[in-house]
Design a protein around this nucleic acid. Structure first.
Lengths: 182, 182, 182, 182
DNA sequence: AATGAATGAGCATTCATTCAT
DNA sequence: AATGAATGAATGCTCATTCAT
């Protein structure tokens, strides 16, 4: 059981700001100010700003995966599991303050030679892809999981670009068709 | 006929760096150094860094649209036109140095209150969406264009994340099914 | 008879801006923009910004002196002449847009090692002092001119600082007393 | 009890330079160089150059007021108090390096829309005016304080313009007449 | 006489990080 | 574990001036 409230407070603040404003647009100064801690305290818990980013991605990755997993586990049939995932996607992308996918945002911000962060983003996406693979395995349709994955990604990115609800609707109907809806 | 070689040199350098490194990771100093011009010369031609960004997006938007339009115009049947577009997408995303979609990258970098840039990105995407609409209009399938658009976006983003050729392959097959399926 | 309208236009614009905003706060770019001329044209007529300043002071000095001289010449008695000068001072300092004395403003802006400009300001002030000396000479009161001169300066500076009409009123009454008002 | 030697060093250097060269003619770079500190250290203590100016004016205002107050308090009769003040004025304006009144200099430098600084300057001057009012209150001569205040200002500005000792002499004799005149 | 383009030096400010306490 | 102070390097931008045409 953890009691490092300072560390958590830093992480919470950084997460919020990284998401709302972007990683590069968020300075260390703003983080410590809004977290209400001293600058050196931040560096006691995280050895660099990129460290903060790494942990932010890690936590967000777990949360995202769990959210999708949990939603799907409430259903038994693959098609229903996928449907539940699109329900989550709808909630997520329609929420006020939705500012795109955390991982797709970050990968657009880091220099292309930062292999570590890029790998971390890719890993998170592979996790989702795996989850979809697991879910549709019983259906034995080759590449169905990847098709669903592409729709998943399309929803995340297009919802941000357009700021409208249609992408999730269109993608959901495409998914249903793929899953055999007559 | 204009003879603005310096201006062009600035724009070329900025475009390359914005794409390769990201907008925020590219400083004015690097641009002028690589363009081989003085700082004040840059500001003679562009009144701010954001101005440079605006023009970068404008030019990239035209180039992208024209590329897709040109590819599609070499074909007559809607399905062939779409196929040609996915050919272009394959070339684009497999090219060494592919670093994602310029517009999706930028929208992840600008603060969410920068409505001007966000609108510019959205407008470019709406242009592509319109192009797809025009192409499939003869097929009279409601929402087909938007379905193709989502696949288009999915390819752009997933190719970057995974750095692999499968997304364009999967998406292309999905598109063919959408078009060819009776 | 001069017909250098461009030169005049530059001078007029520079004069207005130097007075309204201050010399250091006025850039060459703003001058040429508001004057509607090219940068190199400015440098064709004035070899430097300080040249512009020199001529600005020269013209303003003549204008100020003439204004006071003209006002005083409409009267015959020394006391009336001085009174007329304070009338002018009242008009000047109460005018909307009054931003202090051009010369006192400039001398506060230039580095203290700029002897040329400082001498020019001093010369203008000595001119006014001489004018007052001439006017009160018939009264044969030693140092009366300098006393009036100090009041003159006090009005100019205090009207700016306080933005109120009382300084000119107080100074005028002091002047009247000095001139023998019972 | 604070131990802010760096902060003080910055303030001392800035004060000296602002006075000797003017506010606009003094760059941050010169301040940090002469203070022997890093640029970011300056911004740790003062959030902007204007902040530095505000504090400079504040300190100078206190010092000036205290100097005049202290001088006057060594005397008991109002006329002697005023005389003491003119003694101080003489010392001040004759000192090598006298470059005018700090407040009158600054008000000539700031853009006319900077109400905050203008108010600060005005407040300092009102403080002096109040002090004079208090001193001559026993004499019950209406507007005497303002008359003395105008002479006070005239000395400050004219001593700078002319770089000669006569203004303080002339003004002092005028003041004596105002006070001693039956 | 007039210009648009170009420049080097400088501006105020912020960055992520480290150090002594 | 926590901090306030300090830093070197970089940020985007503006300055007065000059040059080729």
């Amino acid at each position: 059981m953890r009691n490092n409230t300072v560390r958590d407070q830093i992480m919470d603040t950084a997460s919020r700001l990284f998401y709302d404003q972007g990683y590069n647009n968020t300075g260390i100064n703003q983080i410590i100010e809004e977290a209400g801690i001293a600058k050196a305290s931040l560096y006691q818990h995280f050895k660099s700003k990129e460290d903060l980013l790494t942990e932010y991605l890690e936590l967000a990755g777990i949360r995202m995966y769990d959210r999708m997993l949990t939603a799907s586990e409430k259903q038994t049939a693959p098609a229903d599991k996928i449907s539940a995932i699109f329900d989550e996607l709808a909630l997520m992308t329609q929420r006020k303050g939705y500012n795109g996918c955390r991982f797709l945002n970050i990968i657009a911000e880091v220099p292309s030679d930062n292999e570590r962060i890029k790998a971390q983003v890719k890993a998170q996406k592979e996790g989702i892809r795996e989850l979809l693979k697991e879910i549709v395995k019983p259906l034995q349709k080759e590449s169905l999981a990847d098709e669903l994955y592409l729709l998943f990604e399309a929803v995340l990115i297009s919802s941000k670009v357009h700021g409208e609800p249609w992408p999730v609707g269109v993608a959901r109907r495409m998914a249903e068709k793929l899953l055999g809806g007559k």
